[in-house]
Amino acid sequence: MADPRLHGDPRASGGGRLEKKWDGSGGHAEQALGRSRGGFGTKIHVAVSGLGLPTRLILTPGQAADSPQAEALIDGLATEVVVADKGYDSRAVVEAIESRGAKAVIPSLRNRKIQRPYDRDRYRDRNLVERFWHKAKQYRRVATRYDKTAKNFLGFVHVASIMILLR
């Protein structure tokens, strides 16, 4: 029997993982798939307007942290206030928000020695993101990723977002 590694069988490298190509493309990371506490999946980061309508969507593998995506989410958007949860609490994120002339309403992580003050009344507006996700997850393809490729999945997330915009 021939060695499957010689014929480019991706399962031959062990564990059913796809190997990256010579140029660095390919593999699960390119398709925004990764392991997190909840299992194997994708994380969708969203920026919503003051009306709770989506303005920007970003896909990352499930194990990706929230704070590195913050700058990409707000880049090019005209904002006065950026409301985010504790996952986006980092000095770099707050500085990026304030450099754009906006106010950061992000509670500090519990383990910070110096707790940064934030507007608790303004923080209640984070509920707009939660309400957006409640509407988006009514679409089964968004709630449970059936698409193999990241671009197909993100395309349907965009379709669901457009349906929410049209309501």
Rank of each mutant, 00 (worst) to 15 (best):
G38R: 04
R120T: 14
D3Q: 04
S67V: 09
G8R: 13
K137N: 14
T149V: 06
L165M: 14
R140T: 11
N111S: 09
A160V: 08
D125F: 04
D85A: 08
H28V: 03
Y146I: 12
T79S: 02
R126V: 06
A160G: 10
Y88C: 09
A70T: 06
I162K: 10
L51C: 03
R124I: 05
K151F: 15
S49R: 04
N152E: 11
P107G: 14
R145K: 08
L59F: 11
L53R: 11
R120H: 13
R124F: 06
S161E: 00
L59G: 09
A47M: 12
G101P: 02
K137H: 04
L128N: 04
R167I: 05
Y118C: 11
V159L: 09
S25Q: 14
S36I: 02
L165H: 13
F153A: 10
G24W: 06
T79Y: 01
G155T: 15
F132L: 15
W22Q: 12
S108T: 13
P54Q: 08
V81T: 15
E98C: 05
V83E: 00
K86D: 07
D121N: 11
K113F: 02
H45G: 08
G24S: 03
D147Y: 05
G34M: 06
L154Y: 02
R35H: 08
L33V: 11
K113Q: 14
S90N: 03
R141L: 11
A84M: 07
V94I: 12
F153C: 04
A64F: 15
A72W: 00
R112A: 07
Y139M: 08
A47P: 09
L18A: 09
P68S: 05
A64G: 06
L53Y: 12
R116Y: 05
Q63L: 00
R11N: 10
V142T: 12
F40N: 05
S90A: 10
K151M: 07
L109D: 08
I44G: 03
P54L: 08
I97G: 01
H7A: 12
A70F: 05
S49D: 15
L18V: 06
R11Y: 15
D3G: 02
A2E: 03
H28E: 15
E80M: 00
L77Q: 13
S13G: 14
G38D: 03
H134P: 01
E19N: 03
R112Q: 14
A70R: 10
G52E: 00
K103L: 13
S49F: 04
A47S: 15
G16Q: 11
P107F: 13
D85L: 10
I58V: 12
A65K: 14
R37L: 05
Q63K: 05
A84I: 05
A160W: 07
L154Q: 07
G26F: 09
L18W: 01
V94T: 08
R110H: 10
K137T: 06
L73K: 06
R17M: 05
G34Q: 08
Y118D: 14
K21V: 01
G50R: 10
R91P: 01
D89R: 01
R145S: 13
Y146T: 13
A32P: 02
L166R: 08
A47L: 14
L6Q: 07
A136I: 04
H7V: 10
G14D: 12
N152V: 09
M1R: 06
I97Q: 00
R120N: 14
V93K: 00
G155W: 15
P107H: 11
G38L: 03
A65Y: 15
K20A: 05
A64N: 13
A96C: 03
P4C: 12
V129G: 13
R124D: 11
P4T: 06
R56S: 15
